[in-house]
Amino acid sequence: MLDRTTCYENLEEPQKRGHATEAIIQSAFVLRDVPVLVPTYGTDAYDLVVEVGGQFHRLECKTAYRSGAGTVAFETVSNHHRRDDYGGCGYNGRAAYFAVYDPVNDNRYLIPVSEGTGERMELRFRETAADGTPTIDRAEEYLLDDRLEDLRRS
């Protein structure tokens, strides 16, 4: 049987990996009893909307990929052309959170868009001998269940 990472790599088109990620993230929220709204068209600057604590939050779904020893990364900008011509720019003001699926570790993260730096964000899931890079965030700080609890309390 193939592992998750190989399954993702076998999806030759990036759009198929994106659709798989959206489905996994959507089911993660549904399993946690969080209502999920899906835009009718694929032309919005976000993929899903969730309702937590009576508030709606726009999510941009991203797939993480192995980027180094003990790290995964995801792109924080879009290269797709959509109706409002935001291709190649960030998501500030367009989405509130990146909902990230990491097929390497089978983790789901919820990261405020405002914390996404540059064109990609790197998350460390395992300590290495060469740790100390200040631009790499700790993955455990963004785990979906913890972030969801924070949203429910606010």
Rank of each mutant, 00 (worst) to 15 (best):
V77M: 09
H81Y: 01
H81K: 11
C61P: 03
A45R: 09
F74Q: 03
V34A: 15
C89K: 14
A95M: 08
E12V: 11
V100K: 06
P14K: 01
T40G: 12
T135M: 04
E140R: 09
D146G: 13
D146M: 09
R17Y: 02
A99M: 11
L123G: 01
E115L: 13
I136W: 01
L110S: 06
Q15D: 08
R153S: 13
E13S: 08
E51A: 09
T128R: 10
S27G: 07
M121T: 14
E127G: 08
K62C: 04
E122Q: 12
V30I: 15
T76N: 04
F74A: 06
A130N: 12
A28I: 10
E140Y: 07
V52Y: 03
D33C: 15
Y46D: 11
R94G: 03
D145K: 09
R126N: 04
D146Y: 07
G42A: 13
S67D: 08
V49W: 00
P103S: 06
R108S: 13
L2C: 01
T117D: 06
V72R: 01
T43Y: 11
D33F: 14
E149W: 03
A95P: 12
L144T: 08
L2A: 04
E9C: 06
E127L: 10
E12M: 07
T6M: 07
F29W: 04
G116S: 01
T43I: 13
V104F: 10
L148G: 07
E140C: 11
V100F: 11
S114M: 03
V113N: 03
R82G: 13
D102N: 13
R4M: 12
L110F: 07
Y91C: 15
A73I: 07
C7L: 11
L37P: 04
D131N: 13
A129C: 05
L48C: 09
R94D: 09
V49M: 11
L31W: 11
E119Y: 01
K16A: 12
Q55A: 09
G90Y: 00
K16P: 00
G93I: 14
E127F: 07
A95S: 15
N92C: 14
R147W: 05
D47E: 13
D84Y: 14
V50W: 02
G53Q: 05
Y65S: 09
I111N: 01
D102V: 01
M1C: 05
E127Y: 06
T43E: 15
E119L: 05
T63F: 00
T43G: 15
P134R: 03
D150P: 00
L110C: 08
M1K: 04
T43L: 14
L144Q: 06
R66S: 04
I25V: 15
G88N: 14
A20T: 09
M1S: 06
G18E: 02
L48K: 03
K16G: 01
H80E: 15
A139K: 00
H19A: 10
T43F: 13
I111P: 00
P134I: 03
F29M: 02
R153V: 07
C89M: 14
